[in-house]
Nucleic acid binder design. Sequence first.
DNA 1: CGTTATCTTGACGTACATCAAATGTCGTGG
DNA 2: CCACGACATTTGATGTACGTCAAGATAACG
Lengths: 244, 244
Amino acid sequence: MVARPLSFVIEPHRVLDPCAHCDVRSVSVCSAIDDRDLNRLAEMAEVVNVESGRTFIDEGEKADAFFNITAGTARLYKLLPDGRRQITGFAGVGHFLGLAVSATYAFSAEAVDAVRVCRFSRPRLRRLLEDFPAMEQRLLDVAANELVAAQEQMLLLGRKTARERLASFLVARSAGSTPCGPNQARLHLPMGRGDIADYLGLTIETVSRTLTRLKSEKLIEIPTTTDIVIRDRDGLEALAGGLN
Amino acid sequence: MVARPLSFVIEPHRVLDPCAHCDVRSVSVCSAIDDRDLNRLAEMAEVVNVESGRTFIDEGEKADAFFNITAGTARLYKLLPDGRRQITGFAGVGHFLGLAVSATYAFSAEAVDAVRVCRFSRPRLRRLLEDFPAMEQRLLDVAANELVAAQEQMLLLGRKTARERLASFLVARSAGSTPCGPNQARLHLPMGRGDIADYLGLTIETVSRTLTRLKSEKLIEIPTTTDIVIRDRDGLEALAGGLN
DNA sequence: CGTTATCTTGACGTACATCAAATGTCGTGG
DNA sequence: CCACGACATTTGATGTACGTCAAGATAACG
């Protein structure tokens, strides 16, 4: 596979008023725009498909666009010169990316699986925001929520044990997943162990060992590497919160 | 020292139009409000003095106010039930606090030294924001900047060594401090070793040891425990960035 | 100028990292 | 369908950076 300058496929709009038919709008910042103004949003949006593993935001590059994820999951990360990586978050459907004041991106983003994004040019979105304060307010809410999540993650990275980190990760992921029985849930992990490790500030080996330990303690089951069943949600939550 | 329900002193405004004479306005979000509208801001602001060590925001409590720091430094932190503490940031003059969507505060805030804050009731500030989109935009910028800082801190907590953490901390603190010679700077640390430890995800002992090591390596000097001189800013920055 | 909190230094322990190998998973082609 | 190779995950043996426990040394304070 050869790296090419333009590494993703751009799909020109084929339908009229694509935003009106967007099934992701309800969970994204776009819901702040009224139905009758959707065409203004649509004409500046560009649908981009990013295949698994491809980078679509590069830390340090000129930040000329915002992104809204409409399918798949992306990992957001920062690197140290020697290759150490910290994943700062996983961005799923409805997630808004690129909220930077600076002229360059502060992080990189890569597709974990097949990702589709709506791409907005920065200056055009800026202008849109001036006309639609509701959208700006919505963005402020999003940013405030991310800030809260970031603080929670700092607590995890700075003060929790490996076991507590994994428990926290699974509990957080289980929010909005299919509950299968009382005190239980089944969840799918699109990212590999390496991603989980770099998200939790651990190594692959420690993640693996800790998961098998949680399994032996009957807190979880691991039917496949990418699917995990929470057997004892309360126990896991207690662990995540620092008890035990 | 007995804890009392109302643990800080409220100073009623004595001057007319206090915001107009506020020497902190230029570095705070309040600068987004036009001179002629300042009275609207002033009538909802309340100056509060918080003495050293006092808590003025309690994680989990009802979030009924925003704060703007006008003097001193506060530590923002989260606790685990067994007492483990992670300081998520130090808030200095001009810093805006309380940007939470949720009904309760996501963190606690304590005065490191003597702190003075402007306190705004939440509903009233919300109404003000509706009338002044410039203020809202300013808040969005603030939030975006904090998000960038939070991601940087996640990289620090998840992937940097103790030596790199201290170097990063000192370099970050030296931004905007008095430069005393080329490649040098003098900086004051209002917080103790325990605060630094809880901010960097380390223990007091490791912070102390690492500082003395940086001193022995001629990267810094430690004239007093609360004042540090950076002798080799480039070396410290390289270390902070993960080189060496 | 004692008293107490904070900081530093030392000796030792441990949770997690590192290194290494075995096992499992999945796509590809015979 | 099965054999093969590439890669991800698990498991094991060992190392180490940082934590813990315990004194001293400084600094802060009445």
